[in-house]
Structures are given as C-alpha cells and as structure tokens.
Design a protein around this nucleic acid. Structure first.
Length: 435
DNA sequence: CTGGGGAGGGGGCCC
DNA sequence: GGGGCCCCCTCCCCA
C-alpha cells in the first residue's frame, strides 16, 4: 500500500528543517550569502553537488562548504527552493540566470523547464502586445504586478499539454549551447551600458562557465537609434510608454500556460503590424522565425561552427559568408593593391586556414608561391544548381575527420555540422570568438 | 590619435 | 520555417 502524500510530506519536512537549520550539514556561500542545506538532498538533486560531495564523502563528519560566484543569491534561492519544494519560480527576468545556474549545477530538470519557459516566450501573443501599447505610463507603473510562472510538482504534466512541442526532448538545442555568465547577462535590458558589459565579462572570466566572450551581445545603440527615429510609427511618448511597460513586463514575467497562445486579435491600423515581441528587449518582429533568430543574440547560442577554423556563428548565412571570405578567397580583389583580379591576372594564396587573392604583380613582389587550388571545382561546390540547394555544403562523409586534416588537405570545403554542445562540451574550453 | 578597411553581427525581407 | 541576400552598424586592427 502506498501513501501518495508521503513524498510531498517528506520534502515538506526537509524544507522545514532547512529553514530552521536543523540537521543542515552543508553550507553554500553565494556572493557572501550563506545558504544552509542537507548534503543528502543536494546530492540527490544536482550533478555538481553529487560530484562535489562524492569527493568529500570520506569526511562526512565535517560540514561541507561550497562557494559560488557564478550566480546571484537570488538565483540560488530559486534553485534551492525548487530542490526542497519541487516548485520553480521563474520569471522573464530570472529565467536565463536560473538556467545558467542550473547548467552549472547540472540540474537537468531545471534546465528543461527553463528551456520550455524561454521557448514558450517565442509565442508572444498579440493580446499581450496589445496590452503593452494600451497601457499608459501610469497604468504601466500601477499594474506592474509581479507575477511569476510557477513550475510546481506538476510541471511535467504541463509540459506535455498544449506545449508538449517544447518538452525537454524537443528543446535540445537550448541546453547544448553556452549561455552568458550571470553577471554578464544579468537582467539588464538592452539599454545597459556596454562598458558595464565588458567589465562583467572580465569579472566572470575566471568562472568555469564556458562562454564565448561576446555571447548575448546586444547592440543597444540600435534600439536607441530606433527610438530616435522620427519616422517611426509610434511617437516618442508612446515609445517611452512602451519601453516603460516592457521594463515592467520584465518583472511581470511570462505566464506559462496562460498567456502563451497567440491570439488572432489584430492591431488598429495606425499601429505597426508587428506580431512577435522579444521577451528580453523591446525588439518586435513580424515573423516567429525572425524572433527565433533574434533570440540567439540574447542566449549566445552559436550552433554553426566553421569546420576550418572552429569559429562559431549564430547564423548559417554568417558562417557561409565567413567561409567564403576567409577560407575560399571568393573576393576577386588583390589583397595588397586592392585591384580587381581574375583567375588569369591573379592567384589564390593560402596563409594557414585563410585564403586571399593576389594579383600577379603583387605575387611577384611578395614572392609567395600560390597554391594549386582548383577554384573551379570549389566554385562548383559553392554554386549548386537550384534543384540541389544543399550540395554547396560538402557534407562530412567521415565524421571523425579531424580539424587538422581539414586544414592540412587544403580543400577548405565547408562542412556544416550542427554541433551538440551538451555536457561534454562544457568540459572543454570553448574556442573564443575573438576578432 | 585618427581614419580606413576588414570582419562579424543583427535586422529586413525575398524566395 | 529555413536559407540566403542585402544593408547597416560596430568593433578591431593597422598604417
């Protein structure tokens, strides 16, 4: 016979013990704030603690202390509350940081819920948008009620509801990429100073969260430029009201399962027919696909690595552009004298993984031997027939083909591979995308 | 210190 | 919805 309330009762008791610091044998120091918890509970909830406590298992008589600077105390409170209650208190403001912390702590369930939460935010309803526009400044400030999305013990059931397409398995791409460090991304809206961002990057460099330095870059100037654009459909006052409201909406968070449905309400004719609003900034796009693409600049997701140099890109077209420019010398311009060159008047020079063209005169001056590169054949690869769009991407026949081989054979064919940046990737050092 | 150019990155939009 | 192109902006390097 099974008593269904036992588990929740047990967890409740443990939580109570934690709050009263009873039998707590583990102290977690997060940016100066001390959290008390039970070793057993942490061990069972987090892969990170499992490893940490396994190493200290021989010294069970001594209280264990862990120190974190990768996330804020508030974030760890959310995590710890989840551990002891099964309820994850997510808001649009904290979800990225919570996910980053969960990633650090190797808490896959939490990561999955965060993924679902973020992915759901792609479906920004027009209703919500309508609310943004209709609220006055005063309304925005008075109605900005803190509402959090609670992922209680039943979140798994919820995720198999109408949002089942966002279930953890389907959201793989999110967990595989790197997220900006907590202090880098924090909860700043795009207006945040870039200097502050740079400082944050420096500050968090020592952390083991492997992030590309420019992850989650967002160019606030663009927004400012837009805000100052007099040709905008919205007056500056309205824009400010919208921004204020959206600033507020950051704390309003996202109503999972309630506000995610895209409604069919249309805007009045004098408002732009934009449909999808970014949950992290003021950007609004017409197409969901564009929002998905835009979100990568917040998440730092870079699913397209260059197989020639390892540099990673958030977009396939940027990768192909990079590859053409850097590794295929597609520009018919002499790098030295900038004159137009053809296959007759110049040749391709290889320098590491980079290729560029030099005219015959500059080639003679520099005295570099050109490579016997069959550009026609490569051009063929880069110019597929319309009926075979993907033939330009020389798909890897041998997945074990190493980077060295790619470089050394000089073929420099672009190998598109949407990589899996899952757990094992976190162990490796990410090649920084330093320009 | 400054200007020019290259490269990367983001948005709009067409196919 | 994805791929790809164009445009624009920013950053960085270098002369």
């Amino acid at each position: 016979m099974e008593i269904s309330t036992h588990q929740s009762h047990l967890l409740q008791q443990l939580n109570e013990q934690r709050r009263q610091d009873v039998f707590c044998d583990c102290s977690i120091l997060v940016e100066g704030k001390v959290f008390k918890a039970h070793r057993n509970v942490l061990f069972a909830s987090s892969g990170y603690f499992k490893m940490l406590l396994s190493q200290n298992s021989k010294e069970t008589s001594q209280p264990t202390t862990a120190t974190f600077q990768a996330f804020s105390p508030d974030t760890f409170t959310v995590i710890l509350d989840f551990v002891y209650s099964g309820k994850l208190s997510l808001t649009g403001q904290n979800v990225i940081e919570v996910m980053s912390a969960a990633s650090f702590l190797q808490m896959t369930d939490v990561i999955s819920v965060c993924k679902t939460f973020i992915k759901s935010s792609l479906d920004i309803s027009e209703k919500e948008k309508d609310r943004y526009f209709s609220l006055s400044d005063k309304d925005a400030s008075s109605n900005g009620i803190e509402r959090s999305a609670f992922y209680g013990g039943s979140w798994q059931e919820e995720s198999s509801s109408p949002h089942s397409h966002l279930s953890p398995d389907h959201g793989k791409s999110w967990g595989k990429y790197n997220y900006p460090p907590a202090s880098q991304r924090s909860t700043q809206l795009p207006g945040a100073k870039q200097e502050q961002r740079k400082d944050s990057i420096k500050k968090t460099k020592h952390l083991r969260l492997s992030q590309p330095p420019e992850a989650a870059q967002y160019k606030s100037s663009k927004r400012e430029a837009r805000a100052s654009d007099s040709s905008s459909h919205i007056s500056q006052a309205e824009e400010q009201a919208q921004i204020d409201t959206e600033m507020d909406s950051a704390s309003v968070g996202y109503q999972y399962g309630q506000g995610s449905e895209v409604t069919s309400r249309s805007f009045s004719d004098d408002l732009p027919r934009m449909r999808f609003k970014c949950p992290y900034c003021t950007h609004v796009v017409k197409r969901k696909a564009d929002l998905k693409r835009h979100l990568r600049c917040h998440t730092g997701e870079r699913p397209y690595p260059c197989q020639a140099c390892g540099k990673r890109f958030s977009r396939l077209d940027h990768l192909s552009s990079h590859f053409r420019t850097i590794h295929q010398a597609c520009k018919l311009i002499c790098r030295k004298c900038k004159r137009h060159v053809t296959d007759l008047t110049g040749q391709v020079v290889q320098e590491g993984t980079r290729r560029y063209r030099l005219c015959n005169e500059c080639l003679a001056e520099v005295g570099i031997d050109s490579l016997p590169i069959d550009l026609e054949a490569e051009q063929h690869l880069m110019s597929p027939s319309d009926g075979d769009k993907h033939s330009r991407w020389h798909l890897s026949e041998d997945e074990n083909r190493s980077y060295v081989e790619i470089v050394e054979d000089g073929s420099a064919d672009l190998v598109i591979q949407q990589v899996d940046d899952s757990e094992e990737e976190e162990e490796k050092e990410i090649k920084p995308n330093i320009r």
